[in-house]
């Protein structure tokens, strides 16, 4: 039953898309080393190869060479044949294909718990939205000047009465920056300008649309462990890119570092329940990302970004496609 599924077209698609993601991930990481790629904008593009190519590789190869899925190709031409591993049954109980599929089911469960359920929870929580408390002239003027500098239509501002530091951008066409009154009290003018510039860069880069599209790809590969990791890294890369661009505009990394530092979150020490543990883990990973952003800002070169090399990028994409063809 398991082996029959694995050798069917859906089974081959699932197996090969996971394998192709691993191959793409390894080749992309090696490309960073070989081509000395440190710029996050470049890394973002390379990582997109890991997210997008494996979705199309199997059907593309099947159209070009239908014989590729046959045993003859697997045995005589393929560089790596997944079925050789998946058919292994060392203990005589269950073939490795069963363990492989179980692993993918666990990944799917993680995807549902971490990425689907929160969307529904967020929707139900929206029944009581925080109302905008208006705006501040100083913020408006600041945003006007930033928008003019980076040539975007000035987004509207919404101040909400929240005792937490909140700064997010919403919308796809008509953007709105939501900021909490607590954050306005916490940051000085330089820091506020740095933080708002970061948000304005998100608007300029159309981060919301990009993230939604990448999330769509992620949803298509809900069972894929590589997509799980790479999706987060791409989102983090987007933050690093916006930080770098914001600093190149304000030329004040210290202000952005201070603004980012105000987002550190330490949950109260309370009873040792599961929800507290979950909150602690989430806050730890949130704080780690802030640490990383600050570290990168400390090492940033304010003078400019690296030139993006299309030749290495095209070579890397070609190698992923070529090696992927031989991985069945």
């Amino acid at each position: 039953m398991i082996l029959r599924f694995i050798s069917s077209y859906p089974g081959m698609y699932i197996t090969q898309s996971v394998l192709h993601s691993f191959v793409a991930l390894i080749i992309v990481e090696l490309s960073f080393f070989a081509w000395d790629i440190r710029d996050h904008q470049a890394k973002f593009r390379y990582r997109m190869l890991t997210m997008t190519l494996p979705i199309f590789m199997f059907p593309l190869y099947q159209v070009i060479a239908p014989q590729r899925s046959a045993w003859y190709f697997r045995l005589n031409t393929a560089l790596f044949d997944s079925q050789r591993w998946l058919e292994l049954n060392p203990l005589g109980i269950i073939p490795l294909a069963g363990i492989f599929l179980a692993l993918l089911m666990v990944i799917t469960a993680v995807f549902v718990m971490q990425e689907i359920l929160p969307i529904f929870r967020e929707r139900s929580a929206r029944s009581d939205p925080k109302t905008c408390q208006g705006t501040l002239d100083t913020l408006d003027a600041m945003l006007e000047s930033i928008s003019r500098q980076i040539a975007i239509p000035k987004p509207s501002i919404c101040i909400i009465d929240e005792p937490l530091p909140i700064l997010v951008t919403q919308g796809f066409k008509n953007h709105m920056i939501i900021i909490s009154s607590h954050l306005i009290e916490l940051l000085n003018e330089r820091q506020l300008k740095a933080a708002l510039t970061h948000e304005a860069v998100h608007i300029k880069r159309d981060s919301s649309t990009k993230t939604q599209l990448i999330y769509l790809l992620r949803m298509l590969m809900f069972y894929n462990p590589v997509s799980l990791v790479e999706f987060r890294r791409i989102v983090h890369d987007d933050e690093f890119i916006c930080d770098a661009i914001a600093v190149s505009l304000t030329r004040d990394p210290a202000a952005l570092i201070a603004a980012i530092s105000s987002f550190y979150y330490h949950p109260d020490e309370g009873p040792q329940g599961i929800s507290q543990m979950k909150e602690r883990i989430e806050s730890h990973s949130h704080n780690l990302l802030l640490d990383e952003r600050i570290e990168k800002l400390r090492a940033i070169d304010v003078e400019g970004q690296e030139h993006f090399g299309w030749a290495p990028f095209a070579l890397t994409a070609s190698v992923i496609l070529a090696v992927g063809y031989l991985v069945v």
């Binding site: 090696l30 560089l79 058919e87 292994l88 060392p90 890397t316 190698v319 090696v323």
Partner: peptide, 25 residues
């Protein structure tokens, strides 16, 4: 050259991984 070497390394690793099951079964 560095890129080619790393890719060759990947192909060698894949070939070795492909060979291992024949030792087990």
């Amino acid at each position: 050259i560095l890129f080619v070497i790393t890719i060759l390394l990947v192909t060698v690793i894949l070939a070795v991984l492909n060979w291992i099951p024949s030792l087990v079964q």
